[in-house]
Amino acid sequence: MSRLILRRLAVLPLQVLGVVTIVFFLSRLMPGDPAFRLAGSQATAEQVAAIRHDLGLDQPIWTQYWRFLTHAVQGDFGKSVQTGNSVTTDLLQRAPATLALILLSLVVIIVLTLGLVGWFLARPRGVARRTIGGYGFLAGAVPDFWIGLALISLLYAQFGLGAAPSGQLDARMFVDNVTGVAFIDAMLAGEGEAAGNAVLHLLLPVLTLAIVYTAPVVRIMSAVSTQTMQSDFMRFANSWGIKSWRRIAYVLHHGAPTLITALASTVVFLLGGAVLVETVFSWGGLGQYGVAAVTQSDYAAVQGFVIVAGTFTAVVYALGDVLHTVFDPKLRD
């Protein structure tokens, strides 16, 4: 098992290298000369040449690639045009808000999944099955950003639940930015009212992500559970007359490795979903930063954002595989 884990972890740097390479060569596909774009329309030929030299664009492509790689490894993605800060500073500042959104949604998703799959296992036929089937189908077809808006319209505009989509706090509230997550900042500052407000602001985005991304996990888990229910070992267990809660526990235990792999994928989906949901709720995290970078052609920021997202993905999948190995008795030695 430990050899398997080591092998898996050894692949990780290669995957990150792959992402960095893709991002580099994508940037070379861009039409036009980046030096011209950076210099602006008023620049003289000398200025353009100077920028080109500064960026190393007058070097052969492999030298450029090497330069990009060594900078990226050191966490240097260049300067953002929109904020004027280094892209790394910008990304670090915004990452906690996105992570908080993703992790909180993940917790809700796990609870919902266990609840729904438990219900399905207790009553494998009838309503539970149809509900899960229908829900899984619909959730895959409805855009997440639209769900966010629908929830705002239904819960906030109609019933005053949650808060206006204006970021992590009401505009009138203010807490010192320490961690980048308003709720934690408010708790640190000991401001109960602001913390309560931050919870209200978390409600709708987390609900949006949970509604959309619980569905695939539940779908997979109920499919796997159905298989397990019909397996020989469960028939054997049933013939001994085990209690129904015990049956459910057996099936869930047997499904744990699958659940872990599914959750790893879910975290990656959540990152993609966060890009959209952050835009809907003006969350101020990584996703919104990436979107702003794209719409304002801030290419250094786009590159930094994609590399960070790709690295995050690679790490999450590696972690999922490692945990899978730990939880799957078939892979133990």
Partner: peptide, 20 residues
């Protein structure tokens, strides 16, 4: 494998940023 490992929305955004 590599292309599929990047979330689709983010990859899509990066591509649009590239192609205009």
């Amino acid at each position: 494998d590599l292309v599929q490992s990047i979330p689709v929305v983010i990859l899509g955004l990066a591509l649009v940023a590239t192609f205009g």
